[in-house]
Amino acid sequence: MIKPVKHVILAVYAVICLYPFLWMIGTALKTSQDALANPQSPLPKGGSLHWSVFGDVWNKLNFYRFFLNSAAVSLFVIFGVILIYTLMAFSFAKFRFRGKKAIYYTFIALLLVPGVTTLIPLYINMTNLGLDNTYVGIILPMINGAAPFSIFLFTSYFRTIPHELYESAVLDGCGNFKIYYRIFLPLALPALGTIAILNLIGSWNNVLWPMIIVNDQHMFTLPMGLMYLDSSSFKKWNELMAGALITIVPILATFPFMQKTYVKGMTVGSVKM
């Protein structure tokens, strides 16, 4: 292909990818009148940048609270997913026992149930347990939702660890639980990283479940904070975009790890096709 054409194609697509981010940043730095009057421009009028909006959103509109809630939810989800499903995967990968296939495939099949189907009973269930407006109530269903892919990935990964390691540890008198956390867990660090990042993004962006189980504003997560800004009677685009920026910054921080992780995660799944 002729070189200039090639670069035009690549550059045009790059602009399409980047423009929404530019518009978000530019609009956040406008005054609210400017944002309303000139939505087509990604640049604040007259070039003056109004940084104070971040302080307003963070303090007055309680985004620091939403941020803490989101961070707590994501951390507990990641921790729970890794703890619970590496344990299960270790058992699936290392032992022969009755009912193994049935249990394994039951969990994998959960992947196919659309989230919205079980939302209603989940809501009733969690409310009956008194878990509405609590971290536990937000977190448990998210951990359960991460089960299929996590079990699948951890099991595949544990099976690539040489069995001789397990056998020699047994000969040295090492118990199964000790083998799990002293040998298998450290060796599976790349898989743990993949699952951690995928669940960070998943739980950070999840809005459907928190929106149903939470109605107390103190328990809002960041995406709910955005919906709250959107629903107020005088929508201020600059505030909404400042909130949006606060929401995406932690996800952007995972960016350097994400590229490799994504390709690896997807290709582990296709190896056995």
Binding site: L18, Y19, P39, Q40, P42, M241, G243, I248, T254, M258
Partner: peptide, 25 residues
């Protein structure tokens, strides 16, 4: 090119809402 994929979420849906406004980008 990778940016839209990991960041896509509620925050970006509001950006698109703004870009699609009648006098938007």
């Amino acid at each position: 090119y990778f940016l839209p994929m990991i960041v896509s979420g509620v925050a970006m849906f509001y950006v698109w809402k703004g870009l699609f406004e009648p006098s938007g980008a």
